[in-house]
């Protein structure tokens, strides 16, 4: 699992992200991810507990292609917490 490595390579690696920064980081290169992340952020981010908010930040820092593969089931996150929050995001989109 190279999530840590990806985090290190990524732009969004600061520990504390402002709300605006996080919202902007939900602007992606693909419509599917815009809807998954952006709409989830607007509707549900504030209701997450601190741990899940942190995990959401981790997810947002990942490359588009990887997130898209998670979404289409081509690969899945090794980290169980990440997998859990990602599932939450997909479920939220379908309601």
């Amino acid at each position: 699992m190279d999530i840590l490595e990806q985090l290190q390579n990524s732009r969004v690696k600061k520990t504390e992200l402002s709300r605006g920064e996080l919202r902007w980081a939900c602007r992606r290169g693909m419509l599917e991810l815009d809807i998954l992340l952006g709409d989830f952020f607007d509707a549900h981010y504030d209701t997450l507990d601190a741990l899940d908010q942190k995990i959401f930040e981790t997810l947002v820092a990942m490359p588009d292609q990887l997130l898209y593969e998670y979404f289409t089931g081509k690969s899945s996150p090794d980290d169980l917490n990440i997998a859990r929050v990602f599932k939450k995001i997909c479920n939220a989109a379908s309601h």
Binding site: R11, V12, A25, R28, M30, P63
Partner: peptide, 9 residues
């Protein structure tokens, strides 16, 4: 946006 989040992706 961060370059690798451009729509070309």
């Amino acid at each position: 946006v961060f370059p690798t989040r451009s729509h070309t992706v």
